[in-house]
Amino acid sequence: MQARMGPNQYGKAEIRLMKVDRDHARHVLHDLTVSVALAGDMDRVHVDGDNSPVLPTDTQKNTAYAFAREHGVAEIEDFAALLARHFVATQVAVRRATVTVEEHAWERLADHSFARSGRETRTATVRYDGDRIEVRSGLRDLVLLSSTASEFRGFATDRWTTLPETDDRILCTSVDARWRHTAPQADWRASYDAVRSALTTAFADTYSRSLQHTLYAMGARVVSTCHGVAEVRLRLPNRHHILVDLAPFGLENPGEVFHVDDRPYGLIEGTVLADGADADDGAW
């Protein structure tokens, strides 16, 4: 049976970039990780070893640095779109560019001094094919915890089930969320803040019957209250907190001391759509 080349892409992954805005005495940091993936007429690169369609990944890295200097990095969605449009417009063989940007937060200490923040990482992914541009904003490593108002019972069991039911437990997760916009936002920062607030408020307001139940509540709050969001994809690992048995030491433990177990962990994933929105089957 003869072989043929299937879908493929290439690019520069995890370009570390720090842009310092020095226009005023109060400096601003933009600490980014940028990844580029290009796709198009690349079959002959793989099959024949013809490198003429290939824009070196080193060039892609240099472009990110140069664009940060020439155009600035006001909002990561805009910066990702600028790069994606550039690669498609300037490279004949490139039919689609996907650019992902992560922004790492810093806490201000003074006008030009900072400490690395423990906040979540803000993300953006832009895909452009020469005609249509799609934007996904997101966040990861947003750690949330409720010390009560969470249960897990009434689940399926079989001969290997040992997990007891509980009507009161700690619920903790590290949120990885991506949301798709129906159109470019006028204010990306305000849109991000609104989605983050919807996620955290829903987590706090929901009496959780399972992490799946909480996932839907969080996603539903986003698509119902945040303008221009068509869908949100959530990936929620269950950070298990296991009650420690202190009886061997003659001590009671009324839900106060827990062992934090980092692995293995339950992983709950799901997509919540706005009413009337079509699901995007793409993995990006």
Score class of each variant (00 low, 15 high):
Thr162Asn: 11
Trp106Asn: 04
Val257Gly: 12
Thr201Ile: 14
Gly154Thr: 15
Ser146Glu: 15
Glu231Gln: 09
Met218His: 12
Val88Ser: 07
Leu38Asn: 02
Phe87Asp: 06
Leu243Met: 10
Val195Phe: 05
Ile170Pro: 01
Val92Glu: 15
Trp106Ala: 00
Leu29Gln: 00
Leu55Arg: 01
Phe155Pro: 11
Arg69Trp: 14
Asp41Thr: 04
Ala149Met: 10
Ser197Leu: 07
Ala74Asn: 08
His24Gly: 12
Asp23Asn: 07
His27Ala: 07
Arg85Phe: 02
Leu215His: 12
Arg221Tyr: 02
Gly255Arg: 01
Thr225Gly: 05
Thr33Phe: 03
Ala81Ser: 15
Arg189Thr: 14
Val20Cys: 05
Ala198His: 04
Glu70Ala: 06
Ala124Arg: 03
Val244Asn: 12
Gln2Arg: 08
His86Leu: 01
Val232Asn: 03
Asp205Gln: 15
Trp284Arg: 12
Phe203Thr: 11
Arg209Cys: 03
Lys12His: 12
His30Asp: 06
Val195Asp: 01
Glu14Thr: 09
Glu120Leu: 00
Val94Ser: 00
Thr100Glu: 09
Val36Asp: 13
Leu139Glu: 01
Ser174Tyr: 05
Leu273Val: 03
Asp205Pro: 09
Lys61Trp: 07
Asp48Ala: 02
Ser210Phe: 04
Gly49Met: 03
Leu211Tyr: 02
Arg239Tyr: 03
Tyr65Lys: 14
Tyr207Leu: 09
Thr98Val: 14
Asp193Ser: 04
Arg233Asp: 15
Ser208Phe: 04
Glu165Val: 08
Phe79Ala: 04
Asp176Met: 10
Asn238Gly: 00
Asp245Thr: 06
Ala220Cys: 01
Ala3His: 12
Glu14Val: 11
Ala74Gln: 13
Pro248Arg: 00
Arg221Gly: 09
Thr59Pro: 02
Ala279Asp: 14
Ala220Leu: 06
Ala84Gln: 05
Asp21Arg: 04
Val260Arg: 05
Phe249Lys: 05
Ala194Gln: 07
